[in-house]
Nucleic acid binder design. Structure first.
Length: 820
RNA sequence: GCCGGAGUGGCGGAAUGGCAGACGCGACGGACUCAAAAUCCGUUACCUGCAAAGGUGUGAGGGUUCAAGUCCCUCCUCCGGUACCA
């Protein structure tokens, strides 16, 4: 018998499928459309590891199934090609980033073809090509024109190692998202997108998305909507008269317990309210805090909060009490009003501060309104108000609305919603990105450059530095231009856009990747979008996924789209851990590549193993033994199917025929639902079980010759999306189609529902919940009959000792439970 | 701290409230072989027992139920996110 030789099959079939244009997006108006997208990768020099396969192979299986199931399938791939690594490589080697990108994308594509990912390569896109970034620039101007892009000269997060400014999202936790270096703050003029204007919609519209709960939670956390109130305290100063000191609180119910106010050291009115006597102290405190990073502040304050008194007193408008004003760096500059009312009785941080500096603690919330004392720690729970004037006796919850209304009526405050999310810092002083299409004119200000694309010029040096100047600034011929509005001399913006701008709309481009008079063809977008299935790693939760949602909503507002959410269903594949229990990384030398595994076991076995290794979302450790297992499975399919390729028809074994029909129907049913439901591991297990059954009964093949052939056909077709090579070869060898055909365009098999039910079923007989026996009964037996048969069992009789059972529970098709 | 998720054999993992451990890996035994690899057949949760059989068992402890890995309560551990957000 011909041995299984995967190399031969791969060499044979890949070119055949390519010549048939098998993966080209079909556009049959009779069929439903299905858009399945993988996060487009950054093509790094390291190439793909088997970890990436956990993203690309499952979606590929789904797409192949959908094609067989009668869908038009859009399954594209492209390159998120702008970014630091190509630039860094270019600096090191002198090779132009365009060339670096070309080499890397070719390698990625070659690897994807190794495991036969069925992308429609005629739709390949590259975010660093002018045909693409022209439209990224177009969207910058769309945001600019809608008042959603602005320049500001603020403190930024800055990575001293990468020498780059970072958005808030890219510096979460105070460390750089790329290199994990602790970020510092730097004041530089930068461009921002007003994502904060969309905060409410970004939170509210999460609810209906079919996304993993943790990703939705992360976005909700990140946006951090909180409802509270702003209340204006006032400070009467000698020099500047009365200064308003608005504070933001989510606990206005505790305001009668405010015993001091705290301003962030960066607060703009801090020195104005500080008295002469305390000025030196305050100034010293400000400079000491500004020398620290946020992380250093946090670490220091865990040992004990610090702060200094300003000498000023603020008036609490609710009770007209004057309370001291302090500055302390546990109050953050960037949130709320950078000033708080401190309620030590009911906020742990304020409590710690009050204890340290011996400030008064007044209890104003207690269960049932009865003071219980606040000695060891703050009581943060809601309760009933006390010591709160006319509001005493109210519950925390009702008082929050009442007190906010009261403040509004008396014009010293109002209810207010605040968010943690900040505007998106989008400009980068970097070479390898899409130039921001703005011209700076002394007379006209920032003027949009409508003549797109603004081509990224060639420069002599890509090297970034700490100056806050882009490498493009050295390119004088390019920088110096004329103002499109007044015609006078002007300079181009030299910053480029962060890579996340490019990826905020790419999913739209795939619908019409070669459209050259618009970012996308509206009709094509209507056909395909929103994305039906989006798959990638969870690391994009509060970066790419939040930015892309934001841009989609902006486009919707601009009338360009008729939907507000780009990705209907999102799935995150689990991480693949290497054999040494660590993440795969080049520096650890533990990366396993699809290349070596395809050489050793073939693409079919690799594809099978990737989806069989465990649940799709779970973090799994790589096991080459596991891969060897799916390789054996493929070989067993090969051997069994060739062995029973030609069978002499014999007298029909009715009993076995029935059993085989049952096994076939139940397998096809399970594979269909498991694969579609992303339960690939159990879907493959069902195929394995079925093969085990066929193998054990191979000697009976001749007694069910016609059915056996149908089994072979359905088995191969339903395995084809996972193991394209071996199935197409066997399908042809067994004569199911001629050379003009391929298994991959066959219709997905159906099953006979009646066959999934057996005539007789085995029922477990329990006595008080413990299994004591089994009976075989007709599937349609009545409860009474089943009970009668169960009670006749010797074991049951022994237990009952002649008396009647107290209770008998019969679950048809499953069990009988007898309570004696 | 807060938010989200998860705890099941030697390992990866299966189980609409209804037979816990499917499938795979590994291990052990056997067949084939001069031998090995490959392949095929069998065994494989734990305890007692020669066996038949019996008992125990899904992170811990309670509860609901005829019946709980699954539902409820209290707690522990691990993973991911976030973190002085007032």
């Amino acid at each position: 018998m011909r041995p299984y030789n995967f190399k031969e099959l791969e060499k044979k079939w890949s070119p055949i499928w390519e010549s048939k244009n098998l993966y080209k997006t079909s556009d049959d108006p009779e069929k439903e459309n299905f858009y399945c997208l993988d996060y487009f990768p950054y093509p790094s020099g390291a190439g793909l590891s088997v970890g990436h396969c956990r993203n690309y192979i499952p979606t590929d299986v789904i797409c192949r199934m959908k094609r067989m199931d009668g869908f038009n399938v859009l399954h594209p791939m492209g390159w998120d090609a702008f970014g630091q690594p190509a630039e860094e490589y270019a600096i090191k080697t002198g090779v132009h980033p365009v060339e670096v990108t070309r080499v890397n994308t070719e390698n990625y594509k070659r690897q994807m073809k190794l495991f036969e990912a069925s992308y429609d390569w005629s739709r390949e896109i590259n975010s660093s090509s002018p045909e693409y970034y022209k439209w990224t620039q177009f969207f910058f101007l769309l945001l600019f024109d809608r008042g959603l892009a602005y320049q500001s000269d603020n403190f930024q997060m800055y990575c001293p190692s990468c020498k780059i400014v970072l958005s808030n999202e890219e510096s979460a936790g105070g460390i750089c998202w790329r290199c994990s270096t602790e970020v510092i703050k730097k004041r530089l003029p930068q461009w921002y997108f007003k994502i904060t204007e969309y905060a409410d919609r970004l939170v509210d519209q999460l609810d209906d998305l079919d996304w993993p709960e943790n990703i939705k939670a992360m976005q909700r956390n990140w946006i951090g909507r909180s409802s509270g109130a702003e209340v204006v305290f006032t400070v009467d100063t000698e020099k500047s008269g009365v200064i308003n000191l608005p504070v933001y609180t989510t606990r206005i119910d505790t305001i009668f317990g405010a015993t001091f106010c705290v301003l962030a050291p960066e607060h703009s009115d801090l020195l104005k309210i500080t008295t002469e006597e305390h000025r030196k102290n305050v100034e010293e405190y400000i400079s000491a805090s500004s020398a620290k990073t946020d992380l250093q502040r946090l670490v220091a304050s865990e040992k004990g909060k610090t702060g200094v008194f300003t000498g000023a007193y603020a008036l609490n408008p609710f009770n007209n009490e004057k309370i001291p004003v302090w500055t302390a760096d546990y109050v953050l500059a960037g949130y709320g009003t950078a000033a708080i009312m401190a309620v030590p009785a009911h906020d742990q941080r304020d409590f710690d501060f009050a204890k340290k500096y011996d400030l008064p603690i007044i209890e104003v919330i207690a269960p049932d309104g009865i003071a219980q004392g606040v000695e060891e720690e703050a009581t943060v729970a809601d309760g009933q108000l006390l010591n709160s004037g006319e509001f005493s006796g109210l519950s925390s919850e009702e008082s929050r609305n009442i007190m906010a209304d009261f403040a509004e009526k008396n014009k010293f405050g109002k209810g207010e919603t605040r968010y943690r999310i900040r505007d998106w810092l989008v400009s980068r002083q970097r070479y390898w990105g899409a130039p921001i299409p703005i011209i700076h004119c002394d007379k006209c200000g920032a003027v949009p450059e409508r003549n797109l694309p603004v081509i990224l010029p060639d420069v002599d040096s890509y090297q970034p530095d700490d100056s806050g100047r882009s490498p493009l600034a050295a390119c004088e011929d390019w920088v110096n231009t004329t103002c499109p509005e007044c015609g006078g001399a002007a300079k181009r913006e030299t910053s480029t856009m962060a890579g996340f701008a490019c990826s905020s709309w790419y999913f739209l481009r795939f619908a019409s990747p070669h459209c050259d008079d618009a970012p996308f063809d509206m009709d094509e977008v209507k056909k395909w979008l929103p994305v039906d299935l989006y798959v990638g790693g969870a690391e994009h939760a509060v970066m790419h996924l939040i930015y892309a949602r934001f841009w989609t909503k902006v486009m919707y507002d601009a009338g360009m789209l008729d939907f507000t959410e780009p990705f209907t269903c999102l799935k995150n594949q689990g991480m693949l851990i290497s054999y040494d229990h660590q993440k795969m990384s080049k520096s650890k030398g533990n990366v396993i590549t699809p290349d070596e595994m395809v050489v050793k076991y073939g693409a079919d076995a690799l594809r099978l193993y990737i989806i069989f290794m465990g649940p799709f979302e779970a973090e799994i450790e790589w096991s080459e033994e596991g891969l060897a297992g799916t390789f054996r499975f493929v070989k067993r399919v090969w051997n069994l199917f060739l062995e029973t390729a030609v069978i002499e028809k014999q007298e029909t074994d009715v009993e076995f025929e029935k059993e085989l029909k049952y096994q076939l129907a139940r397998t096809i049913k399970k594979v269909t639902s498991d694969m579609n439901g992303f339960q690939f591991n159990t879907g493959v297990a069902a195929m394995m079980e079925f093969l085990n059954f066929l193998s054990a009964n191979r000697s009976k093949a001749a007694s069910v010759a016609d059915l056996w052939r149908k089994v072979q056909q359905d088995f191969l077709i339903s395995l084809a999306p996972v193991a394209p090579f071996v199935t197409d070869e066997l399908w042809h060898v067994l004569g199911f189609g001629d050379d003009s055909e391929t298994i991959h365009t066959q219709k997905w098999p159906e099953w006979v529902e009646e066959d999934t039910v057996k005539d007789t079923v085995e029922i477990v007989v329990q006595i008080k919940g413990k299994i004591r026996g089994r009976i075989s009964v007709p599937a349609d037996a009545s409860k009474e009959d089943i009970e009668k048969m169960a009670l006749q069992l010797d074991k049951v009789q022994d237990h009952l000792k002649g008396s009647a059972p107290r209770r008998v529970i019969v679950v048809p098709g499953r069990l009988v439970n007898i309570i004696g």
